[in-house]
């Protein structure tokens, strides 16, 4: 009887551990934090909780935590604990980003917890997470898309419609590339080799605005939208894992 009670207690305890404290067991988060503890407020992750198609999931992360004088967010990581590689996408931000609200499309192999971890230039951390369920909807069984050319094509940049310098507005970027993860079997006992776009670097008059690093958890045709208040003299450079580059200017 007593041991039963105890068991009940342990079960209750395990179930009451919520998603946001699970990070202690998730090295991708725990190692970045070291012995620091994050603020679990002020950062918001917007992602559907039930996902019909894990190959392209809309994700928006925004920050409204309080920052000290001269403090700004300098790093932001999106991590997924059950993807074969937990790295989804990460950002190096500059002070030229007036408002942190980043939108992207990610890949989720199965139901799991998705984390957003942010760090300021002063070394403070913020963390949030969402448990998501990935299903494949019955009417969505499509055929596998044939793999396109592996080169980066069609770099796209959309400036806001009526931008006024000094007023933050959203800018969108995308490039076509299949983002082959290296985890797909080739049907002959091996794997289709990994082919990724590694990064997108955005500068304004030569100064860094945002650096974005893509990983296997980034969906095909990497898409990122972010807020800026600079709308001219912008250079966008995409680099693939072989060092090839594509550049656009605005």
């Amino acid at each position: 009887m007593r041991s039963l009670l105890l068991l009940g207690f342990i079960l209750t305890m395990t179930f009451s551990v919520n998603a946001s404290s699970d990070w202690r067991h998730f090295p991708a988060v725990a190692e970045r934090l070291g012995n620091q503890s994050p603020t679990e407020a002020g950062i918001d992750l917007n992602i559907p909780l039930v996902i019909d198609d894990g190959s392209s999931v809309n994700l928006k992360v925004s920050f409204n935590g309080s920052l000290a004088n001269e403090e700004y967010l300098s790093r932001l990581w999106i991590l997924a604990d059950k993807n074969p590689n937990p790295d989804v996408i990460d950002f190096e931000l500059s002070q030229a980003i007036p408002k942190v609200e980043l939108t992207t499309r990610i890949r989720l192999g199965e139901s799991q917890t998705v984390y957003a971890l942010a760090q300021s230039n002063q070394g403070n951390f913020w963390l949030t997470s969402k448990d998501v369920r990935v299903t494949v909807s019955g009417c969505l069984m499509g055929n596998e898309e044939p793999q396109a050319d592996i080169a980066m094509t069609q770099p796209r940049v959309a400036l806001p419609r009526n931008p006024t310098p000094g007023n933050a507005a959203e800018l969108r970027t995308m490039i076509n590339h299949p983002m082959e993860t290296g985890f797909r079997e080739d049907g002959q006992g091996g794997y289709i080799p990994q082919q990724l776009v590694k990064s997108l670097n955005v500068t304004q008059a030569g100064n860094p605005v945002i650096d974005i690093n893509f990983h296997t958890g980034t969906s095909a045709n990497p898409f990122v939208a972010f807020f800026t208040d600079q709308f001219s003299d912008l250079t966008f450079t995409w680099t693939d894992q072989h060092g090839a580059q594509v550049t656009e200017t605005r």
Partner: peptide, 9 residues
Amino acid sequence: GKDNFSKQG
């Protein structure tokens, strides 16, 4: 608004 759809092939 999607990259693939039901019964696409």
